[in-house]
Structure formats: structure tokens, C-alpha cells
């Protein structure tokens, strides 16, 4: 069993929008400094699970604890990175302005101080973006915008980094670089990636959480062809069931 401290604990959780069940009887544990990928088809409940962890919605049944507290109390310790495509590219902000938003709750009135700016530059250097601090957001490429949004999450000094669809609309070379950055960050904090794209599964990620109304966990490990044949009798790459699965196991439709 995993000896690391549990940071997310979900027990018997169910959630539905009206009559429509979205998540059914979810049990899930995520540990500190773990790297997890939440995958599943669109509409399978990934975003719902994400919003539950962030405390933006409450489950109708079951419980969810983040860092041992209710999620809305713990959300300050989470660094959240949304999809960069949702932003209006013409919005008048520089890279620095965006990263500073990670410290917006620190002052009730007025402007950011020198310390805020110092921390923002440090967060930008973590992702190799400090040279672009004065650029307008629209001048950046997709991969660069994504790095800026990670810097914004990092400036909150998070213990958990939550990334929503980070590789959507980013070319493979940039993705590769992105994983190198994530791996480095993962030494300091837990990382959860949400994606609908199975290709996201990198060998550096420890577990995969499959969400399609029901939730199941697998460790990811790249097996060679013969092992896969032996275990599955088919060419199912990277994923196998884990001892952390729920008792009944699960099936992929």
C-alpha cells in the first residue's frame, strides 16, 4: 500500500444533475506527490469530478475531503490551470498581469507590491517564461499561454497542481517539453491532469483514473508487446488493473 499521506479522499460519492446521474459510487484516494491522470470520454464526468475536488459543487451522496478538510476550505492549497483556449485573446493583459492574479487574494485593496512581483517572476522562471513577462497574452503561442497559466497556478505555492486538458491544441514537440516541466514540478507537489485524450498517458504518470460514470484506478506502466499479450491477450497498451480497484472491478464500454 501507499505509505504517503492522503491528500484527496473520496468515499461512496454520487453526483447527478437533476435526474441524470453523472458519477456513481466513486471511491478514490490520491496521495501527496503522486501524479495522476483523470481520463475518460467527453461527458463522462471528468469536469464534474474536477469541480467536486475544487469545491465548486457539492455531492448529493458520499463525502469528499481535500487535505483532510472540505474542498472549499482547502482550495487555496490547489494550483488550478484551466484550458487556455477559453480566454479572449484580445483581453488587455500582459503575462505578468496574469501570473499576479495568483496572488489576488493577498491584498484587500490596491495594487501588487514588490514581493508579489518577485514571486511572479520566480513562478515564470519555473516554466521558462520570465523573458516574456511584459508580452501581451495574445502575442504568445498556445504552448506559451499554457506555461503562463501554470506559472499563475505555481505562484499560489500549491501542494497540488490541477491541470484541465493541458495538451489540447498543443503540438507534440511542445507536449514533450511540457511533460519534462511537469515531472520536475511533481517532485515538489502532487499533479493531477484531466484529459479526454488517452495519448496524454505518459510513462511518468503513476496512476490513471478512468471516469465514465463509474471511476476506476490503474497504475500506468509501459509494458512490452509480449507482456501485454500475456496479460490481456490483446494489444491494450499501458493500462492494467490495480489492487486499488473497487471490489467488483470494472469494464470499459
Amino acid at each position: 500500500m501507499d505509505s504517503r499521506r492522503t491528500i484527496i479522499e473520496i468515499e461512496n460519492l454520487s453526483f447527478s444533475y437533476g435526474e441524470m446521474p453523472v458519477l456513481i459510487d466513486v471511491n478514490l484516494k490520491i496521495h501527496e506527490k503522486e501524479s495522476v491522470c483523470i481520463i475518460g470520454p467527453n461527458g463522462g464526468g471528468k469536469s464534474t469530478l474536477l469541480n467536486l475536488i475544487l469545491g465548486l459543487i457539492k455531492p448529493q451522496k458520499g463525502s469528499i475531503k481535500v487535505f483532510g478538510e472540505s474542498p472549499d476550505k482547502a482550495r487555496g492549497r490547489i494550483g488550478y490551470m484551466p484550458q487556455y483556449t477559453q480566454f479572449d485573446p484580445a483581453f488587455p493583459v500582459t503575462v505578468m498581469d496574469i501570473v499576479l492574479m495568483g496572488r489576488v487574494e493577498k491584498h484587500l485593496f490596491g495594487f501588487y507590491n514588490k514581493n508579489d512581483k518577485k514571486l511572479a517572476l520566480e513562478a515564470l522562471s519555473e516554466t521558462g517564461m520570465e523573458a516574456l513577462a511584459k508580452r501581451h497574452f495574445s502575442e504568445l503561442s498556445g504552448g506559451q499561454r499554457q506555461r503562463v497559466l501554470i506559472s499563475r497556478a505555481l505562484v499560489c505555492a500549491p501542494e497540488l497542481l490541477l491541470l484541465d486538458e493541458p495538451t489540447a491544441n498543443v503540438d507534440p514537440a511542445v507536449q514533450e517539453q511540457f511533460y519534462v516541466t511537469l515531472e520536475r514540478l511533481n517532485r515538489k507537489m502532487a499533479v493531477i491532469i484531466v484529459s479526454h485524450d488517452l495519448g496524454v498517458m505518459s510513462q511518468k504518470i503513476e496512476s490513471a483514473v478512468c471516469v465514465n460514470r463509474y471511476v476506476n484506478i490503474h497504475p500506468t506502466s509501459e509494458l512490452d508487446g509480449t507482456t501485454i499479450q500475456k496479460v490481456y491477450g490483446a494489444n491494450l497498451r499501458m493500462i492494467r488493473h490495480d489492487h486499488r480497484c473497487s471490489g467488483e472491478g470494472h469494464c470499459h464500454e
Partner: peptide
Amino acid sequence: CILFYNKFLALCFDEKFARLRGI
């Protein structure tokens, strides 16, 4: 708008993120 410049900016750019920061 001077007092709440940062709050309004964060809110207009990314409401969800501002909410998550406890605003």
C-alpha cells in the same frame, strides 16, 4: 476602480480562477 483594480481584473479575465483564490 483603483481600490479594486486587481479584483476586477482577475474577475473579468477568469472568474473561476478568482473564485478558487477565495475572492
